[in-house]
Design a protein around this nucleic acid. Sequence first.
DNA 1: AGCCGTGTTGCGTAG
DNA 2: ACTACGCAACACGGC
Length: 527
Amino acid sequence: MTHTCIHWFRKGLRLHDNPGLMAALRDCKELYPVFILDPQLHNKSVGVNRCRFLIGALKDLDLSLRQLNTRLFVVRGKPEEVFPKLFCQWKITKLTYEYDTEPLSLSRDKTVTRLAEEHGIDVVCKVSHTLFDINRIIEENNGKTPLTYKSMQAIVKKLGPPKRPLSAPSMEDLKDVNTPCSESHEKKYRIPTLEDFGHNLADLPEEQFPGGEQEALRRLEEHMKRTAWVCNFEKPKTSPNSLSPSTTVLSPYVTFGCLSVRTFWWRLSDVYEGKKHSAPPVSLHGQLLWREFFYTASVGISNFNKMVDNPVCTQVDWDINSEYLAAWREARTGFPFIDAVMTQLRQQGWIHHLARHAVACFLTRGDLWISWEEGQKVFEELLLDGDWALNAGNWQWLSASAFFHQFFRVYSPVAFGKKTDKNGDYIKKFLPHLKKFPAEYIFEPWKAPQSVQQAAGCIVGKDYPHPIVQHEVVSKKNIQRMKAAYAKRSANTAKSLSKIQGLKRKPSSSVDMLKKKKKNNTSEPLL
DNA sequence: AGCCGTGTTGCGTAG
DNA sequence: ACTACGCAACACGGC
């Protein structure tokens, strides 16, 4: 019992399958579970729903920690300034945390690791946010980033199944561990409120998906009970506009790490066991592999969240049009299906994957010809499951900038929603102004005769906007613009090829990349 | 995991 | 018994 240890929670807001936390408990006499509120990260640019989710997750984490006779310390400030103080104040000898692949996290963690080592502190970093060590996936592919799902599947097959999840720590694991808590804990280390993030509580929408590990595990079990549904799951066959979600909505919990992706994976394997079941890419396992795929791309491809200097991204002459962008963001495009989806996004912080397809296509190559980077920012703010890698990857996919290249496949803002919601009930739910419109006109109210509009109590141009573009006209024009961008792209093939070779990376494990010096490997490999 | 126009097939039914 | 017609479901190709 020699160590005084900080376990640093960032993502991974859970006790189950938390190898970093388990490493903290080894030979530990004093434990400080810490979450850092970084004003550069946690501010009003994070949407109110996301903030609420994070607060819920922190409260739940604190509750679970208290049951183990320890508790959460929420510390305010920049990590590189906060940690040196904590190291001295608490006489820390070990720091543990979960590996994070995002570029900003990597540089932050490198700095903190260096500071810790300057204080003579052991640093332990574990992979548990993804199924596999993403750097291992790239190594397994000879240093090349897989750019297709198929190649990803081949690599994953070679790697074998992901590691089994660890159990949450028990009282036994903490029996010799103490967490010194002062009288002023509530004052100094309290969990933040929405006001702390600069949000106004007045017009807070009802909470649909409360944050936290307990809620995540409850939700997982609720869905895993539906054996046939799990075994038959095919993502493209689920509806983007059902009144209650047609998918699990476990993504926010995975994003914040309230649910371990490996726990999710193995729980699915349990359900599949001995039964006929759907397979990747459409199955639930397949969805987790999509996540892994985009994580890998985000690690292997430079400038992944940008068009310029991103070697896989087609360079497109997107327009700058703040009026169109605002209309899209604020759900006033005049296309009820698009506006209903954007309303659900703002209200609930979650929309179905195919609804994301429809609004993303509409903003970019389909209708408004606005850069996918603008859409990325809006999703980042509003989605509970807004994830750096997945957001950038999927926006590139939908805008046909990378991974997906069938740019002539354009979603209709009218027809697409009709397929799974003939009566427009979804539109009526999120755009109550339109609720009296007959099904015949609800997807295109501007076509309704004046008499119908009057009877519905909703005049287009007064109570609901005219469509901001003529879809049939702009979509045809945009396909031609995409065609030109692609022609230019293939003309530059030689250039691109040399860039793709620049993607090759030296083999090294995740942890080596964070650590300057390699420690003697006495007990176990770090990963 | 697109949409739309066109053409074909197959079925039921009116005459 | 046979044809003509309407309709839905499906296949295909171009964008």
